[in-house]
Design a protein around this nucleic acid. Structure first.
Length: 565
RNA sequence: CGGGACGUGGCGCAGCCUGGUAGCGCACCUGCUUUGGGAGCAGGGGGCCGCCGGUUCAAAUCCGGCCGUCCCGACCA
């Protein structure tokens, strides 16, 4: 029985002062969630219903690819994490029990599941296997934000695939791609599957599922030709530099006193930023200096750089620049450089460039790569709007929230945790793994972000906390109330989840609350409609109103509901 | 972790500069009226002014420290 008069749905007329993101404001205002602390959120009954709707979609599609649901603890021995090297992660909550034993709160569950599989799986006959659970994750986030979008504790569906070899992993990965595509279609979201960085998960090969929305923390590069990648890894053909200076027979020095930045140099010399060579002094993990070059109007993408180098790099400090690169910051350049030089592909074939002269207050004009300096060529810049994707279509960039991710882990965890099996020949081999996450809370919040209007939330049918909100304007003892009570039972008999607003409140207040909560269909029973034998249906998305004959209204409403987005 | 802002009934805010019995709107409770788009009138309840310390005859107000929360950036399985 979900009668609003006895339900816990505390709605707010005004947004909390500290709420910025649309989903943050509306989910609080609609009475779905409440904050307990930074990055710590309570789901109130209606919010939890939406969360569970998302979970159920995920559960059904995981089961459909033969995955098996289970449950693992959040509290875990630190030792497992020390073995995989992930104990050092800053986001990992670490604690001790009363005897002083080291424990962690899991931020993901590769370690415990691999531990179990290592002990139970012996033979190739036990593989492949896909296991999953919905469990709380704990992450000591540097900055929780945007309500429920980035929290320190959240529920995640994480599944893990265990295969005999790389081909098996490819198959498990493909199964997940298919399942995830269906999950996000069913959830009613606008979404993209994009190429992504593997990040701290390790492994090789990854995609992210992104829901475009204003509050998104990620940027995705997209093209009409179907290109879709996180800008962290996106690759595209650069636009030409307009007004490239004319080529010179050899580099010529020019005085550029005080000009250290691209803006200052291009202004002083009157050339476009794209005609400059931006030279960034970096240090590899080993301490080896490395000079990285990108076009002046481009930005270095450190993730792409690290992936290209296969190791970590960092920017050199001012002191290191003078000592290892032989020039003050702002005047370092590739011509005559004594360190390793790595150049971005977008510089290839250009001429008439301006680069640091490796002495204070001077730059070189007319620089030409490959004639005036040698470098190894890599794609290490961030793509920008207007670049061309591999199919030649124009790149656009949209903010988006990551709602799911899939990783090919390989033997990243099976090796340190000893997860092996015996193959047909009796040879011991490491299990090939994949890991796959989905955040139901983010699915719900992304839906709020994508479909909200001035009146409030507008849920997709598949995620709404209730299918129908039934608003009665009749009071106890009146005909309209009796009709509403009957309709409530009939709607439930049609299999619909109904929130019945029979509060002793004004019509305006009820309508406003219904629109704020955002159930896809609102039915209104009032004296006015009954006089002509009708009740009113309002489709939340678009707020179109229709009259339904009172006779057979429940069946008609159910039919209407089934056609909603 | 760097930068910025804010902590005053449940929510949104004023009061602080210039120290002197804490206020407004919404919400809440009671009564009457009202009832298809956040009603009206009357009455009423509720605040360690984030915490600790200092200055002062006197601190929401001035000073110091701490804690908390939000925003930008860095970071982000």
């Amino acid at each position: 029985m979900t009668r609003l008069s006895s339900y816990f749905l505390p709605t707010l007329k005004e947004s909390p002062a500290d709420a910025e993101a649309i989903s943050h404001r509306l989910m609080v205002r609609a009475g779905l969630v409440r904050q307990l602390g930074a990055g710590m959120w309570t789901y109130l009954p209606a919010g939890w219903r939406a969360h569970r709707k998302a979970e159920q979609i995920v559960r059904e599609e995981m089961d459909a690819i033969g995955a098996h649901e289970m449950l693992m603890p959040v509290l875990q021995p630190a030792e497992l994490w020390q073995r995989t090297g992930r104990y050092a992660i800053d986001e990992l909550f670490k604690l001790k029990d009363r005897r002083g034993a080291d424990l962690v709160l899991a931020l993901s569950h590769e370690e415990p599941l691999t531990f179990h599989v290592a002990r139970e799986v012996r033979s190739y006959r036990d593989l492949p296997l896909i296991l999953y659970h919905f469990q709380v994750k704990e992450r000591d986030e540097a900055r929780p934000r945007a309500g429920v979008l980035r929290t320190r504790e959240f529920i995640m569906k994480d599944s893990y695939s265990f295969d005999r070899d790389a081909e098996g992993l490819d198959h498990s990965y493909a199964l997940h791609v298919a399942a995830y595509d269906r999950i996000f279609d069913r959830s009613g979201l606008e979404w993209y599957r994009v190429e992504s960085d593997v990040g701290m998960m390790g492994g090789f090969g990854a995609h992210e599922y992104m829901a475009p929305c204003a509050a998104g923390e990620n940027e995705v590069a997209l093209s009409d030709a179907g290109y879709a990648a996180n800008v962290e890894v996106a690759s595209a053909e650069a636009q030409d530099v307009d007004a490239l200076p004319e080529a010179l027979a050899r580099p010529e020095a020019v005085e550029t006193p005080g000009a250290r930045t691209v803006e200052e140099v291009s202004a002083q010399l009157g050339v476009s930023a794209g005609a400059l060579v931006k030279a960034m002094p970096m240090l590899r993990e080993s301490g080896e200096p490395l000079l990285v070059l990108v076009r002046g109007d481009h930005r270095l993408n450190e993730i792409k750089l690290q992936n290209a180098l296969g190791g970590a790099v960092r920017q050199a400090t001012g002191e290191e620049i003078e000592r290892l690169f032989g020039a003050p910051a702002g005047y370092v350049g590739p011509v005559g450089a004594t360190v390793e030089v790595l150049a971005d592909e977008a510089l290839r074939g250009l001429h008439g460039l301006v680069a640091g002269a490796n002495e204070a207050g001077r730059h070189l004009q007319g620089v030409e790569p490959e004639r005036d300096f040698n470098a190894s060529w890599r794609d290490v810049r961030s793509v920008v709007v207007g670049d061309r994707c591999p199919s030649g279509a124009t790149i656009r960039i949209e903010p988006a929230i990551e709602v799911g991710n899939i990783f090919k882990l390989g033997t990243r965890y099976s090796e340190p945790l000893g997860a092996t099996y015996l193959d047909v020949e009796g040879t011991e081999r490491h299990i090939w793994m994949g890991s796959y996450g989905i955040g139901p809370a983010r699915i719900a919040a992304a839906a709020v972000e994508q479909f909200a209007d001035d009146q409030g939330i507008s849920w997709p049918r598949s995620l709404a906390p209730f299918d129908v909100e039934l608003v009665t304007l009749g009071k106890e003892g009146e005909e309209a109330r009796e009709v509403s009570d009957r309709l409530y039972d009939e709607l439930r008999a049609e299999g619909l989840d109904v929130l019945y607003d029979e509060r002793d409140a004004g019509a305006g207040e009820k309508f406003a609350d219904a629109e704020l909560l955002g159930c896809p269909l609102r039915l209104t029973v009032g004296r006015r409609g009954l006089e002509s034998g009708e009740i009113e249906a309002q489709l939340r998305r678009g707020q179109e109103k229709r009259s339904l004959p009172l006779d057979g209204a429940a069946g008609a409403a159910a039919g209407l509901w089934r056609e909603l987005p």
